[in-house]
Amino acid sequence: MATVRLSFSPAPVHVRTARLVGVAVARRAGVDEALLDEVRLAIGEACTRAVALHRQYGLTDLVTVEMSDSGSYTVRVIDHAPIEASIGLTKLPPDELAAESLTEDDLTTGVGFALLAGFVDDLQVRPVEDGPGTEVRMVWPVARR
């Protein structure tokens, strides 16, 4: 089992690095080329969400991304924000997307979750086992080698 683990301080500039690494490991793991754009977007959204939560709570803890290719390509993005922050991740109906009352941050959060749910067939969002935080777990199939 080959595992790559990346931890980064919660700064937007590092999200691109996480995307690049995530796609490189996906390609190496044998994920279909046609899925790589979706892998890139999903890892980016999960990391963007984690960075936003850490900044919202003033946390300097590192965000962790774990990539594993045992049987399938599994990516776990782990934050350390209070668990209640994860509540409210729902897809927004179209007529609310451009509503004046919706802030840009809330819209971005809702749209980000819609993208995760739309692009990842096997998606789980669950509390981390030790301490506060949430794990976003995404799985993609790999071709047999």
Binding site: L41, E45, A98, T109, V111, G112
Partner: peptide
């Protein structure tokens, strides 16, 4: 590449 943050900016401009 375009993510949710970029989409939020575009909706902000629309409004």
């Amino acid at each position: 590449f375009l993510d949710s943050t970029g989409l939020g900016v575009l909706v902000g401009a629309l409004k």
